[in-house]
């Protein structure tokens, strides 16, 4: 009996310490970013113009049919997004990997592989909405500030050292967002898709399709690979309920034609 009492006495102060800090009025906050949206946009511009395209790291797909389809998707999303501090740029780049990237300042790159893999424009919209979530929550810049520090970012802005720019860009393309950030982006995607009259659950459908297609989830699926608990993530997206009055308005696009134009472009490229 006394042994149990001792155990209780021993546990109390330690549990109290944990609880005291857990419920403390002060919270461990994210450090202030210290980089304005304007600076972030300039950083994104420098990275895109001076590294991604200038050094031939990647190139735009340059398919008018795909570009105009993407414009339709973007218009719907941006309209639903409403007021934003960012001037979003969403481009399709020639890359076979099923992926999309977010760069600082609202630059979103969608790989052509992702367009080919998607069965509907709504799937692409859901992925773009997810990436927009990373932009609006400033996840990219917070990752950069954490990894490189403000001094380096400002030195890129003022001077544009090509080595630094290249290093920043490579780091962004190779590192991952945290689980918390991905969850926030999922949440954002859900809200935005619903606001844009598209079924928000399609993001989960897309993830499930990816998982079925690639059970081992290779690392290149940036927006999936940072999630060891992607099942929970899919479940979270599906579990949220939509209001009874919710009705989807399909995107007015001939998706088969868009994908056909990509195939045609590929064959043409190979023949040349």
């Amino acid at each position: 009996m006394k042994t149990l009492r001792d155990l209780f006495l021993l546990a109390i102060p330690f549990v109290a310490i944990w609880a005291l800090i857990y419920y403390a009025p002060w919270k461990v906050e994210e450090p202030g970013l210290g980089l304005s949206v304007e600076n972030e946009q300039e950083l994104g511009r420098v990275m895109v113009e001076e590294w991604m395209f200038e050094e031939g790291q990647t190139q735009l797909l340059g398919n008018p049919t795909v570009d105009s389809a993407l414009d339709v998707i973007n218009d719907r999303l941006i309209l639903a997004l409403g007021t934003t501090e960012y001037d979003h740029h969403i481009w399709v780049v020639k890359e076979d990997q099923i992926n999309a990237y977010t760069l600082p300042g609202g630059y979103i790159l969608v790989n052509s592989g992702l367009i080919e893999f998607s069965d509907s424009p709504e799937e692409v919209a859901a992925v773009i909405a997810h990436e927009l979530g990373h932009v609006e929550h400033r996840h990219v810049v917070s990752r950069l500030v954490k990894e490189f520090g403000l001094t380096i970012l400002f030195s890129v802005l003022s001077g544009g050292d090509p080595v630094l720019i290249s290093e920043l860009s490579r780091s962004l393309l190779s590192s991952m967002f945290s689980r918390k950030q991905e969850a926030e982006a999922d949440e954002f995607s859900w809200e935005l898709m619903a606001k844009a009259d598209m079924d928000p659950r399609i993001l989960a459908t897309f993830f499930r399709k990816l998982k079925d297609e690639y059970p081992s989830m290779p690392d290149e699926f940036e927006f999936m690979s940072s999630h060891p608990h992607h099942n929970a993530r899919i479940r979270a997206t599906l579990e949220k309920s939509l209001p009874d009055s919710f009705a989807t308005v399909p995107l007015n696009l001939d998706w088969d034609r868009v994908q056909y134009s990509m195939g045609f472009q590929k064959v043409k490229g190979e023949m040349q």
């Binding site: 330690f14 310490i17 800090i21 419920y23 994210e30 590192s175 689980r179 918390k180």
Partner: peptide, 21 residues
């Protein structure tokens, strides 16, 4: 691995408790 060194009060509380222990 997963959270890019983002920690919360829950973790700090546990870490302090373990430190005191």
């Amino acid at each position: 691995i997963y959270d890019n060194w983002e920690y919360n009060n829950n973790f700090v509380g546990y870490a302090v408790m373990v430190g005191v222990f």
